[in-house]
Design a protein around this nucleic acid. Sequence first.
DNA 1: TAAAAATACTCCATAGGTATTTTAT
DNA 2: ATAAAATACCTATGGAGTATTTTTA
Lengths: 166, 166
Amino acid sequence: MELRLLRYFVAVAEELHFARAAERLGVEQSPVSRAMRNLEATLGVQLFDRSVRQMRLTWAGQVFLGECRRVLATVEQAVSAAKAAAQGYQGYLRIAICDSLAQPQIATLLARSREPWPTTDGRAFLCAHTPGSDSDAGKLYASTGARIRVRCSCSFDPSQTGISRN
Amino acid sequence: MELRLLRYFVAVAEELHFARAAERLGVEQSPVSRAMRNLEATLGVQLFDRSVRQMRLTWAGQVFLGECRRVLATVEQAVSAAKAAAQGYQGYLRIAICDSLAQPQIATLLARSREPWPTTDGRAFLCAHTPGSDSDAGKLYASTGARIRVRCSCSFDPSQTGISRN
DNA sequence: TAAAAATACTCCATAGGTATTTTAT
DNA sequence: ATAAAATACCTATGGAGTATTTTTA
């Protein structure tokens, strides 16, 4: 598997049009078409429904789109984490939270994260999961009393008291 | 960025020896050496300390290694999720948990996850975070009373009562 | 028939192989 | 002096461009 194919797929899946996707990617339509054929062949999975007027994603394509976004985001994080580490950031961490943690506790948590490590540069990341668009999942978890949050990421600056989401 | 470079880097970082890494990757030493130069140049980050007898990872290299493993795992997940979706699995979800959730509750949660969705195939995935090897992080979170688990993933079969880790 | 995707064919960038040199202990 | 990494040089795979054909609504 190559990231190139995943990047192309995301563009095509978002445009639902090979030529527009190609334009967005800065290449021609032909390589995009071949890349998607190649991707489908490699996966052994049909990602597009080409039989309708407006091209559509298959269910597998919809699932794969979400996964590809995750992969590409993870790659970005890997690069920035390496750069940050090279510049002396040692306080990089990723944590999962459940929302039974009140926000002041989160602030305390991250404030304390500056103590044991030399993270005095004031930078840290927080990845969390919230119900996001999948509200059914949220309801489900609520029904168990677990109140688990899924599918969202936040970035956090411990020098501030608030949390900004992205 | 290319996955090829990340795969090569993981091999080199684990072997701490270009020739052995190359052998493991099924290529020659030369391309591996060039790939790592290339990677360092692309990132603008030094990943290896070549001045010592036994090659070592820089701090940035250690951080990047963890990130690369995450990326490659995410890619694997993307592929298997697409294949599973193509075979009709619609019950795919990822959730974060904190360890204040007792294990019976987790079982309940996942048992219920079969109800609202047509997940009667008995397959679902659970990704969690635990202190894992980074025990300092675990202690830190414990000090806040938050008891957050970080850095671990589990896969779960709702038809079973236990949880297997990977 | 018109718009979009697939295909045929070519070129070239670059990954990999082989051989050699450099480096560090 | 020796083991390991870097470099030089060559080859070839495959990705991209151009032009054309096929498809379907």
